[in-house]
Design a protein around this nucleic acid. Sequence first.
DNA 1: CGCCCTAGGTTTTACGTATAACGTCGAGTT
DNA 2: AACTCGACGTTATACGTAAAACCTAGGGCG
Lengths: 338, 338
Amino acid sequence: MARGSTRPTSRDVAQAAGVSQAAVSLVLGDKWRGRVSEATAQRVREAARDLGYRPNLAARNLRLGRTRTVLLVVPALTTEFFAGVYTGATRVAAEHGFGVVLYPSPEGIGPAPDPFASAQAALDGVIASSMAADALTAIRGEALPLVMLDSDPSGSLGAATVNLDIADGVRQAAEHLLSLGHRRFLHLAADVPSWTFEVRARELAARLAEVPGTSVRTARSPISIEGAVTAAETALSQPGPRPTAVICDDDQLAAGTYKAARRLGLRVPDDLSVTGLDDLALATAIDPELTTVRLDAELFGERGMRALLAVLEGREPESGDIPVRLVVRGSTAPPGLP
Amino acid sequence: MARGSTRPTSRDVAQAAGVSQAAVSLVLGDKWRGRVSEATAQRVREAARDLGYRPNLAARNLRLGRTRTVLLVVPALTTEFFAGVYTGATRVAAEHGFGVVLYPSPEGIGPAPDPFASAQAALDGVIASSMAADALTAIRGEALPLVMLDSDPSGSLGAATVNLDIADGVRQAAEHLLSLGHRRFLHLAADVPSWTFEVRARELAARLAEVPGTSVRTARSPISIEGAVTAAETALSQPGPRPTAVICDDDQLAAGTYKAARRLGLRVPDDLSVTGLDDLALATAIDPELTTVRLDAELFGERGMRALLAVLEGREPESGDIPVRLVVRGSTAPPGLP
DNA sequence: CGCCCTAGGTTTTACGTATAACGTCGAGTT
DNA sequence: AACTCGACGTTATACGTAAAACCTAGGGCG
């Protein structure tokens, strides 16, 4: 029995089982085949259970020189999207005996924060969203195995990337609206410098350029419902023929667009079609339910974690973007008469 | 210089600065007053900077027997509420050199999961929401310093508790609706066994019992918009006089109630007043904007972390519930004529 | 002069684990 | 009979850090 109230160590277990500490380590580490008899192994396991032994992670990490812990760097957790990414990553991590520590990049602008000071754990690797740009420089400096989420594959300097096929999602949304007959668009874009938003703009412009007679305005908004209300209201009040469809960079912007439309006396979808991107719970909470591009956040997190595990084991990460798909609901309809 | 590609250790720094490893530890640990000359300390700091030295956390944790890491146990992160709690806790933790590891209790029912297997880090303490009930037994077994969030103060067996003043919030909502003239209520309750929801039911019943001529139905729903739609639709379709006001245990349930009302052809607030609880972003995204009880999630997390730090330092945690307040918006109005 | 004290360090140790290197003993081989 | 070899362990060591215990030289003091 351990003296006093300190947690039992492997040495305590050894003493209880009448063996050496090394034998305990072998048995509990499942490395005892041909080194320890079945009977002894059983005694050790029982002693460990009786004492409530748990290995000291700090000691193990020090000995092994790795921690089986990875850092997940995300922008602030204001929506369930990154919560989903975290959930997916954690699930895969747990299957491989890994833990995940979160580093939500502070939203406000300030002194560049240090993800590694915040994460007390020593780390084996990092998964980082390209949206958490301010934290990236510090990460690069550490030379840790790195997987980037939604980042420019050609600009990632060798880091593995795992991406959603956002370009295809934007194409599907554009196609849907075009086939309904829309020709005048507003692109409500996120005012955040990240590859994933650049893709949206580029792809939309490319697709619409192929269709004669289309026009597209662009408005920028911070990623929040309230911010989007102002941006959308301003953009929709501009002189000239009003857009009949608004393509939003994410669902929150779409929700803001609903509110702007109400203020302007426009009905969705009769006067204005709106599409989003993410498919948050929000998308079906608002009325009418939002036509949006569904992103599988958990799968995204899983793929990110799998890629990092591959890197850590020296394997080649799985390649190929994660497919997305448009979910058509009540916020899109043919345009009214001009 | 460190050989090969391994990270530099304090010994490498010592060699570079021409001192012993102990001197490095003293200087970098800020314990050198009167033990090392200012000039030497300066040399050590420069060497550390030049080599990009970072202390090995595993070694430090092993040596010190503590990790400056705490576990935050929450129900699944499906809304921004617990993201806020996490943010607040992390902020305070960082100010004190602590890290926070998250353990989101899996939603599905299954084999009782082990928070400590998931959290690779060794832990100094735990903050746990009473909503993550399934994880609590494992936590108790570890005999770690523990702070409970929104938990029965009399039933916590000595663990410190930090609570929101939910009872007062419910009272404010009830008062508001009573003063508008409502007498027939529906309480849409969360179908989750947790003290925080018991309080809502108890307080509402207590307040309404004081007002003659009031009646209250109760319906139970899982905490999700979709679940609430069904529950609310069923409850509002019961025979007998229809409730004129619905008090919901949280904002998601309120959003579901909006959808149920639409299906039944009821307008909010003209035919049905609705109140929520949380004040999520969702509350202002839906139309009309939701009258709800605002909970300060970040402050909640901050107070939780402060309480745990107090426990760790043998101090008495700050007491007193965190105040909440009703935010009146467009979802409540006087009842129409019967 | 002998002594202690202080500044400015160094040497040593312990934290708990995983594992490489090293015994030991009996049975089987030659 | 000497040797080998496998089964079953044990002993010893290293991981990187913090800090207790120890050392040394010079100056002040009685």
